[in-house]
Design a protein around this nucleic acid. Structure first.
Lengths: 185, 185
DNA sequence: CGGAACTTTCAATAGTCTCTGAAAGAAGAA
DNA sequence: TTCTTCTTTCAGAGACTATTGAAAGTTCCG
């Protein structure tokens, strides 16, 4: 059998996945190395140490160390230990749902909540102007208030949806998808 | 009446909103000016021209021009015209749902589809190795395949959810939120 | 056409984010 | 303690992205 055909297939598969995950990093607002490390750990069965990351992704020790730490902080990977070895090893969380949960929670805290808070303040200012000012100014304030309300309402719904998704869990998510199919016909 | 109290309230409200929207830009993966311009148009009742953007946000003509064009390309703002004025004016789409729709569509195309395609290819390579290789290599291939499958399945669900959200529209979204509340108790 | 009004482009510059590598820090072993 | 091994930090270098401003392009009008 031509063993050569499959000689490097798995490493290539992993490399491809890592590359694509890294390319997506800019859309997710994180840096490329962090995404690549995460992908590397995700497709690694065995725990991986800092030197492995350095060798496989061709990055410096400092870079590897910093990004591994960030990933631990985000809760996307975990420190792991290998018996008889003092080095620190790392392994990805493999539950995709848990990964998703972690990310949702972060994004809500960092993106949804500050905006809701800000719009609330903007709203109050606009409302005050609407009541106290006269003529064109009052009209503009009213229109602005209306737009702020629309945005606030929408973002609130987003936030609520995130909370509910977290509450219902993966099973619930399947049910929701099913329900949507019905609504969409 | 102390008119002074409300003298600048509305402009301040708008400025605050613009600032916060700009701060969020890094999370959205777009540049700050683009987000600020969008926010400015969103809270502007009257159409706004390039010179207004330059003056209000303190940016150069080129910068204003480029980012206005990007926003038009994204479908988040529209060209508008003022009778008797040759200048181009711009106005934000004010339907928040339409904005959301546009963004969902873009993100699906740019993020979900390429990943699905890539994982599919990775999967095939891993499957091939699993069948042809022996021993430890085959075991690793199997484990890797399993993780890729988990990820693929999850991302597929994401994609389907996006499609369905677009299909059901804002009304449907309210219904779904209602249903979720029931599921979550 | 010729010129005025306005928009777009792009090379140069400024600014921001990321990475490196060496030095400092920490923790187990002898 | 001191040595060894491993991890973290951070100033400076480097890479990448955004911005400027002036020149080129476009469109409208007489």
């Amino acid at each position: 059998m031509p063993e050569i055909l499959t000689e490097k297939t798995l490493p290539e598969s992993k490399a491809l996945f890592i590359r694509r995950w890294g390319e997506m990093s800019s859309y997710w607002g994180i840096n490329r190395t962090m995404a690549e490390i995460h992908a590397l750990l995700y497709v690694s069965t065995e725990p991986v140490c800092t030197d492995d990351v350095m060798a496989l992704l061709q990055v410096s020790r400092g870079n590897a160390s910093m990004n591994l730490r960030s990933l631990v902080d985000w809760g996307l990977i975990e420190r792991s230990h290998v018996r008889g070895d003092r080095k620190e090893y790392f392994a990805a969380r493999t539950s995709v749902w848990e990964m998703f949960e972690t990310i949702i929670r972060q994004r809500k805290r960092r993106e949804v909540e500050p905006i809701v808070e800000t719009i609330q303040r903007c709203r109050e200012m606009a409302a005050k102007e609407m009541n106290l000012a006269k003529g064109a100014k009052a009209v503009d304030a009213k229109a602005c208030l209306h737009r702020l309300d629309d945005m606030a309402k929408f973002i609130q719904v987003l936030g609520t949806t995130m909370d509910l998704l977290l509450k219902v869990g993966p099973k619930g998510m399947d049910r929701i998808t099913g329900l949507m199919m019905k609504i969409a016909g």
